[in-house]
Design a protein around this nucleic acid. Structure first.
Length: 635
RNA sequence: GCCGACGUAGCUCAGCUGGCAGAGCAGCUGAUUCGUAAUCAGCAGGUCAGGGGUUCGAAUCCCCUCGUCGGCUCCA
């Protein structure tokens, strides 16, 4: 058999019955691996030796998932010991850790979590063996029934046929496919993080379980780094920064999920919008504006009234007319498309709008700028022929990429979502559109994954999730093909053949919504915007009252050059003004005292770099202007 | 919408088993004129989220409503 150890292949005849023995045979002195990958499948190291190609896992992603899965079992074991009668649900490894779902009348408190974590540590230090056994179905059902573990019985009945595998560690038995680490002693560095509610099987009609989240790592440093990462993310929270930097406001008096853009945030927004408009015009889009409300009948035709009602604010009535606040911009663009006869020569038509929409999001899902009830989509609709579809998608992909990279986002995850179970249009149409999307993606050279069956009912789509500096992903850009609306509204164009054809409609948003994008942007930069976006680019700090005139003259000169500059003339010490300027994350602080005034220069202090000494104003302006022009993220 | 936690000055938070609403920062006034992350002093600032109840007495205990937060579900 061939055995791969850290990438190296070894050919060897083996006698060992299981992988622990095999490992000891090969490397008697080295610590045991966590799990083993046999022909691509991760397994327990206790399992029987078979298979062609074997790879021992130590600290790989796959090994970490095994560790965390085992940590979740350890959690369940501790909970059952401390809170007998608790019913256990499921406990998988997830992206940054693990969770386990429990059903119990009394809520778990933070103190309970400490207690549970303490018990987990005890159990881990006992280094209890974790064994896999295969039980006859009846035995497993009886075992869980005697212990009142109804959820486990439900799982056995639904998910398995024949015998079932269980994992046993001391007094704890769990229904599980595995794999797991060989003993609890492997689980050394972990922490329980939070408790929250989750429906059994994600179904609102089912029991509400208490989900305990935690994380686990192989190394202490990794755990600490992760906890540190959580702290860092908290510091960058756009809600915190939005308050500290006076960017935006959500007020109870206005209403939940409704954003007030304060002057500094509004300035950043207007810069984003200006850039956005300019780029759209440059790329052959036309800008349009549409109202915020429309006759209810429009939403009947579009189908929103029927399928989207619970997300819409209720209609309003006046003089027997009924109006609906818009949850989407599409129907407006469609009516404009219909307003005259279109020829194939007119296509593609690309209409873009910063369209403000209102959606009634459920109260529990609102979150800062990231999930709101009123927001402005950077929307556009492209009406084109089937032949043009691929080309349009490709150029939209590049557009999205350029747009995002202007804001410092260079990493993405791209997903192609294909036909779901419920869909409109014909299979043929879907295949054609999916092919166009796929070809465009292939031609773009951008890496992507296929998300089978995750398309919207009206068409397939491409979603781009951007990665921020902390590696978190955010869904912003989306490109969706729509077979539904052109049909519902009876859209057509006259083809080369003189006959009527239904155009392909592509919905796309590059930033998603200005609100969400701004929120992501704030977190990405931690509030320290690049020069071209900074609400205040330069602040001049005079050292004494004697230097006020000079400071004002500098500010005027900077303003004349188009900079957003201001002077801090308050009667405070320099250290204080610097501290404030830094906390406000202003890119450049220009300090002017008698010395600078005499020499006609400014002392430059750059965000993140500190005191850089005196330079002439002209020199500074030339440098800074360059950085603004290039949208540089460096200072 | 659901489960849990929370809501005290502009901000961050203290306020114990019920007994006169507090601190720091920010703000205002004055002093100080200062060289790279907080000068000093004084003043002002509150329907303790809102409503109802228990009590001689409620920020504190109970109920309801609203909002926020962590998740579930959903999504730009």
């Amino acid at each position: 058999m061939r055995i791969k150890v850290k990438g190296k292949l070894i050919e060897k005849e083996v006698q060992a019955a299981n992988y622990i023995e095999l490992w000891k045979e090969l490397f008697p002195d080295r610590p045991l691996p966590v799990a083993v990958k046999v022909d691509g499948e991760v397994k327990d190291i206790r399992s029987e030796v078979r298979g062609e190609e074997v790879e021992f896992l130590f600290e790989e992603e796959e090994a970490l998932a095994v560790l965390r899965h085992s940590a979740s079992h350890l959690l369940a074991q501790a909970v059952l010991q401390l809170y007998p009668g608790t019913k256990i649900g499921v406990g998988p490894a997830i992206e940054n850790g693990f969770y386990y779902d429990f059903y119990r009348e009394e809520p778990f408190t933070p103190e309970d979590l400490d207690r549970i974590e303490g018990r987990m540590k005890e159990l881990a230090s006992q280094d209890i063996e974790i064994k896999r056994e295969v039980w006859p179905r009846e035995k497993a059902i009886n075992y869980f029934r005697e212990r009142g573990q109804d959820f486990k019985i439900e799982l056995i009945e639904e998910k398995t046929q024949g015998d079932v595998s269980v994992y046993i560690q001391g007094d704890f038995v769990d229904l599980c496919r595995g794999p797991h680490v060989p003993s609890t002693g492997y689980i050394k560095h972990f922490k329980l993080l939070s408790v929250s509610a989750a429906y059994w099987k994600g179904d609102e009609k089912r029991e509400s379980m208490q989900r305990i989240y935690g994380t686990a790592f192989f190394k202490k440093e990794d755990l600490e780094a992760y906890l540190n990462f959580i702290q860092e993310a908290k510091k960058r929270d756009h809600r915190r920064l939005g308050k500290d930097l006076e960017l935006f406001l959500v007020s109870e008096e206005i209403g939940p999920g409704l954003i007030l853009w304060l002057p500094k945030g509004a300035l950043v927004r207007s810069l984003i919008e200006d850039f956005w408009r300019q780029e759209h015009i440059r790329r052959g889009y036309q800008l349009v504006y549409t109202p915020h409300i429309a006759d209810l009948g429009l939403w009947k035709i579009s189908g929103h009234l029927e399928y989207y009602r619970e997300n819409m604010f209720p209609p309003m009535e006046k003089d027997n007319l009924h109006y609906q606040l818009k949850p989407m911009n599409c129907p407006f663009h469609i009516i404009m498309f219909k307003s005259k006869l279109r020829s194939y020569r007119d296509l593609p038509v690309r209409w873009a709008e910063l369209g403000t929409v209102y959606r009634y999001e459920r109260s529990g899902v609102l979150h800062g700028l990231l999930r709101v009830r009123g927001f402005t989509q950077d929307d556009a609709h492209i009406f084109c022929t089937p032949q043009q579809m691929e080309e349009e998608i490709l150029s939209t992909l590049f557009f999205a990429k350029d747009m995002l990279s202007a804001f410092g986002f260079e990493d993405y995850e791209i997903y192609l979502s294909t036909r779901p179970e419920k869909f409109v249009g014909t299979v043929q149409m879907w295949e054609r559109a999916e092919k166009a999307l796929k070809n465009a993606l292939d031609r773009s050279g951008l890496p992507y994954e296929i998300d089978p069956g995750e398309g919207v009912f009206y068409g397939p789509k491409i979603d781009i999730k951007i990665k921020d500096v902390l590696g978190r992903t955010w869904q912003c850009s989306t490109i969706q093909v729509d077979f539904n609306l052109p049909q519902r509204f009876g859209l057509y164009y006259v083809g080369e053949d003189g006959a009527r054809h239904t155009p392909i409609m592509i919905h796309r948003a590059l930033l998603g919504s200005l609100e969400r994008f701004f929120g992501v942007l704030i977190e990405h930069y931690g509030g320290a915007f690049p020069l071209w976006l900074a609400p205040v680019q330069v602040r001049v700090l005079p050292i004494t009252d004697r230097n006020h005139d000079y400071a004002n003259r500098i500010v005027e000169a900077l303003k004349a050059e188009g900079f957003r500059a201001e002077a801090d003339l308050r009667n405070e010490k320099l250290g204080y003004k610097i501290r404030e300027g830094q906390l406000q994350k202003i890119p450049y602080l220009l300090i002017v005292g008698d010395r600078e005034e005499r020499e006609g220069r400014v002392a430059l202090r750059v965000r993140g770099k500190g005191d850089l000494g005196a330079v002439s104003l002209e020199e500074f302006i030339a440098q800074a202007r360059d950085k603004i022009k290039n949208k540089s993220t460096e200072l």
